[in-house]
């Protein structure tokens, strides 16, 4: 971990996006006081992390990446135990338990042992547990990992609702769609560093409005031609072609670019136009595919800017 610095605005959803092994969980473990802060300074909900860990612990809720439910306790007991850990009085525990079980639609399962719950239900129960103490900040470490698409959407709805009611959310994910749909702002992490931070649209706009991928008979010369064309932000060489980032609407710009290439005597074999996704943003800043995780040095070597 090195040079990780970010601030989260009160009331927002903030995402740490990065491949497995990027260090996201380590950041969460430090912020939730499970790992000691070795260097640097963190203030959370007005408490200093290094000197007032108890103050931090009272202000946060956590949903861990792995399931951390006692298999032999019921949903109600899980929430009750959590409330007791935080010294909530009995009446408040009971009313809060009822409230949360209906929020995550587990009323009917209140007295079922957690070992009989499905993966999605366990996640929902854990979210309810994270909210039990009405934390100011809720940490979610990969909240939808391993869940089916329908359940994921459901979990996203809960997260949005919770946020709407005023809880600040910090989540880690390696799913771009999750970061994209849920967050106000995103930090992209890779190899223990934060590479770039911004709102989703802002990050994507840094890559220009559209991306045009081309394969031509002479990529080197095509790159030169494209770099000089008006409207083109920059051009990157790929393993088998070129990627041009453009400032204008690509559908209008593309015919002109094709004409330029044809004029220079370059034959275009394939062309593909798309809006930049967070994945492209990640690729652009790290030179690696988000899905690759820790490996991918070969890809990094394959990408080399060929002028602007």
């Amino acid at each position: 971990m090195d040079g990780v610095s970010f601030h989260v605005v009160d009331g927002e959803v903030f995402s740490l996006l990065g491949p497995n092994g990027a260090g996201k969980s380590t950041v969460i473990n430090v912020l939730t006081t499970l790992l000691p802060l070795q260097e640097g300074h963190v203030t959370l909900a007005g408490c200093d992390l290094a000197t007032q860990p108890a103050c931090v612990r009272r202000s946060i809720g956590i949903v861990f990446q792995e399931v951390t439910l006692d298999r032999d306790m019921t949903c109600r007991e899980i929430l009750d135990f959590h409330g007791r850990l935080y010294r909530m009085d009995k009446r408040e525990r009971q009313s809060r338990t009822g409230e949360l079980l209906s929020l995550v639609e587990l009323d009917e399962w209140a007295d079922t042992l957690t070992k009989h719950l499905s993966g999605g239900m366990k996640r929902r129960l854990e979210i309810a547990r994270g909210l039990m103490t009405r934390p100011r900040i809720l940490f979610l470490d990969e909240p939808t990992i391993g869940l089916d698409p329908q359940t994921r959407r459901k979990i996203w709805d809960y997260i949005r609702n919770v946020n709407r009611e005023g809880t600040t959310i910090v989540l880690t994910t390696h799913y771009m769609d999750e970061a994209d749909r849920l967050s106000n702002r995103i930090s992209i992490m890779d190899r223990g560093r934060i590479i770039v931070t911004g709102e989703g649209w802002e990050l994507k706009n840094r890559l220009g409005q559209d991306l045009i991928y081309l394969e031509t008979s002479d990529d080197t010369r095509a790159g030169e031609v494209l770099s000089k064309a008006p409207g083109v932000e920059s051009v990157q060489g790929k393993a088998h072609g070129l990627l041009a980032m453009v400032r204008e609407d690509g559908t209008h710009l593309l015919p002109a670019l094709m004409a330029d290439l044809q004029g220079a005597g370059i034959r275009v074999q394939t062309v593909n136009l798309k809006k930049p996704s967070l994945e492209d943003v990640f690729l652009y800043y790290t030179g690696r595919d988000l899905r690759d995780g820790g490996v991918g040095n070969e890809k990094r070597a394959a990408i080399h800017p060929v002028g602007r």
Partner: peptide, 13 residues
């Protein structure tokens, strides 16, 4: 091992 200790360790207890 089952991760349950984290809940307790991260609490103010």
């Amino acid at each position: 091992n089952w991760g349950m200790m984290r809940e307790v360790m991260a609490s103010p207890l």
